[in-house]
Amino acid sequence: MKHSLFSPSSAFRLALLVAPALLAPGFTALRAQGGPQPPPPLMMFYREEVKPGHGAAHAATEAAWGRILAKGKATEHYLGMSSLTGPSEAWFIMGYGSYADWEAKHNEGDSNPALKKEIDAISLKDGDHLAGTRSFLGTLRKDLSYGPPLEIGKMRYMRVRTFRVKQGMGAAFEEGVKMALAAYEKSHFPASFAFYEVEAGTWSPTFVVLRPMKSLADMDAMDTANKAFLDALGEEGRKAMQKTFMDTVNGVENQLFAFSPKLSYPNSDVIASDPAFWAPKPPKEPAK
């Protein structure tokens, strides 16, 4: 991954981008105290397009990133995930408490030249496996998010939905989302998602919705949940919401990702949620 402190232009991973699976307030902050936590106020997304046939080599390079950052005691952690649908991509997400927090993390590399040198070297190797990169920054929209907080360390998948909204139609789009939220509440929709509004890095207005999942089996129950949601909207509500989104949205992209320990540099609280997954012990060498 292109660590934002040292190589801001080289990576765009994970830009979580992504809603009807909106990114939920259930998305645990990357620097949480453990247990369910609300999503971070500020999120940086990095997205890397992996060359065909380079998946394994890219994962190995990313694992080296994590080892280098751990050795240098870097405090900026991130979670990485690989695409299950769409283009062959790796996405990375990094949460911050504020712009000041982001700036402090960004400046951290200036005081650690040894770490910066290693980062520069691994960046060159990582670039051999990439066809393109991009990054974007999003701010949490609590008013558009839904569901109880989740423990991100126990999640294994992420559904990401990205909305590209027509110019001048942002307010109308948000009203449509709030119409849907009321029906989610009424139907007790069994999911959490966090809504991020992109501030910089891609077309504006753009909204990314993240919905973490423990298992892909969670999607098997969606037919029943979606029916209850539509019943809560009612016929007139469905027509009104459909018209609103047709009038305000240029396009929607839906993708599924799987979290990957090899692509991640998680903090201790995420690891503690499931050590066997996030920090598996190396296999024992056979006795000689």
Rank of each mutant, 00 (worst) to 15 (best):
Y265K: 10
P280D: 12
D269V: 09
G237S: 07
A276N: 11
S264I: 01
T248C: 04
A228I: 12
V270Y: 02
I271N: 03
L216C: 12
R211A: 14
A258H: 13
V249W: 04
A258K: 00
A276Q: 15
S260I: 06
V270D: 00
L256G: 06
D247H: 04
K262Y: 12
R211N: 13
G237R: 11
R211W: 08
E236L: 12
D220E: 11
N250Y: 11
F277A: 08
L263R: 01
A279E: 14
M213L: 14
I271V: 12
K227Q: 15
P261W: 00
F259V: 09
S273K: 01
G251P: 02
N254R: 05
D231I: 10
T244A: 13
Y265C: 11
F257A: 01
D220T: 10
T244H: 02
L256V: 06
D231L: 05
E236S: 07
M246H: 07
N226K: 03
L230H: 15
G251N: 08
K262H: 03
T248W: 03
T224C: 15
F257C: 04
M246I: 02
A228R: 08
K239N: 13
Y265V: 01
V252L: 05
L256K: 00
Q242V: 11
I271F: 05
L233V: 07
R238W: 07
S268G: 07
I271W: 05
V209G: 13
Q242G: 06
K243P: 02
F259Q: 00
D223S: 12
E236G: 08
M219V: 14
E235P: 01
V252T: 09
A228G: 13
A221K: 15
P212V: 04
M213E: 05
P266R: 03
P212M: 08
D231Y: 13
F259N: 00
G237L: 14
D223A: 13
E253A: 13
R238T: 04
R238C: 08
K262T: 14
T244L: 02
L230Q: 09
A279Q: 02
S260E: 07
